[in-house]
Write a protein that binds this DNA or RNA. Structure first.
Length: 360
DNA sequence: AAGATTTGCAACCGCCTTTCG
DNA sequence: CCGAAAGGCGGTTGCAAATCT
């Protein structure tokens, strides 16, 4: 019964391949084709297991393998595919011509995964991770200077995505109301916060609240988050924002605040009503309109005409049609530039029925 | 300059599925 | 149909190179 025994494992070499072994394997496969991996080592004169030969060929010696740094387009494809397929490296490799599953896996683990983590994105779920965000600056700011950083700031960042954070913010407000002394004990820190140069903002959360002295008449204006290394651009329903501002959120809403280096002219509620119900996550002026689509959060991926789950699953792995190629312009860009893009990869859209009070 | 630490990647390991006798 | 080996895949390791202190 069963097959004939596999290759004799005794005396088989392991470890790094020598150039001579590579040459033998290449010559044999070029002449005879890969064929049966079990018998290949013996026929090729190699003291290796067939499995080892197959691995060496598919991961390193195959002539169609593309070596070198991953392009931005490839990286973008990997992230998109990983958000759907998870660690199905072979499936991902099937969509990336010339790349092996092993190479993609290595690249994910050594580059992309770390970058996503740095930006507060869970590399498994592709959603923001609050435990990775530097909440300390937000919290200390909120405790030390209620006029500088307030509930709206928390909302602005990620609170709309997280009931936990909203509850935390609510607790902070309660603390503030119950123990105002707590605030006065932190005058020194307050001064530090007031001086942007003296306050060491965390890498992941460089919020800078601006335009404190706007008139109350602009209170309904919508803050625009322009840049942050965490995913931002949470959608805001203007009506609900106003409701939140007048309701449980007792602190004063900054009329025009930003988490970037640049002040963006405030939008009015009317402006927003006529716009899609999300705030643009504008990471860099250099990102062209063609990138906009990529900013949409992946749950919309099925609607993306360029990238659908069905297309992946129905397309043979051998057909190496590259996915949307909107970003080849970023080939060769620096790690920082990639990171900047990566950090804004997610943009969230909430249904119009979204009610912030449901979270409180 | 030297040792420590981090990074990148080839290769191995072990498990699961497929194939074959 | 069954059992065993091949094939395939994802996770992990080990080591050399690069970077930091």
């Amino acid at each position: 019964m069963g097959r004939a025994p596999c290759c004799d494992k005794n005396g088989l070499k392991k470890g790094p391949w020598t150039p001579e072994e590579d040459l033998k394997l290449i010559n044999y496969i070029q002449t005879h084709g890969p064929g049966n991996w079990r018998t290949l080592p013996k026929n090729a004169g190699l003291q290796r297991c067939g499995k080892s030969c197959r691995l060496r060929w598919t991961n390193y010696l195959r002539p169609d393998i593309k070596r070198g740094r991953f392009s931005f387009e490839e990286e973008e494809t990997i992230i998109q595919l990983h958000s759907i397929l998870g660690n199905k490296w072979s499936a991902i490799a099937g969509r990336l011509p010339g790349r092996t599953d092993n190479e993609i896996k290595n690249y994910w683990n050594t580059h992309i995964r770390k970058r996503l983590l740095r930006n507060g994105i869970d590399p498994v779920t592709h959603t923001p991770r609050l435990d990775l965000l530097d909440l300390s600056s937000l919290l200390s700011s909120s405790l030390c200077n209620p006029s500088l950083v307030n509930m709206a700031n928390l909302l602005k960042t990620q609170a709309l995505l997280s009931p936990e954070l909203l509850r935390l913010a609510s607790t902070i407000l309660s603390l503030k109301n119950e123990n105002p002394d707590l605030l006065s004990q932190n005058n020194l820190q307050e001064n530090q916060i007031s001086d942007p140069n003296a306050f060491p903002m965390s890498q992941s959360n460089q919020f800078q609240v601006q335009a404190q002295s706007q008139s109350q008449s602009q209170a309904q204006q919508i803050p625009v988050c322009t840049t942050s290394s965490i995913p931002c651009g949470a959608p805001v329903d203007p009506a609900q924002l106003g409701q939140a501002n007048e309701g449980d959120f007792t602190s004063n809403l900054p009329n025009n605040f930003s988490c970037s280096n640049t002040i963006v002219p405030p939008m009015t509620s009317q402006d927003l009503v006529s716009q899609p119900h999300y705030i643009q996550c504008n990471s860099s002026p250099a990102i062209p309109a063609s990138m906009e689509k990529l900013c949409h959060f992946q749950p919309n991926i099925g609607d993306d005409q360029n990238f659908g789950f069905d297309s992946i699953m129905s397309t043979p792995l051998s057909s190496s049609t590259p996915l949307n190629s909107s970003s080849t312009f970023m080939n060769g860009c620096s790690e920082e530039e990639r990171e900047s893009y990566c950090s804004n990869f997610l943009k969230f859209e909430l249904p119009e029925s979204f009610d912030i009070n449901d979270f409180m």
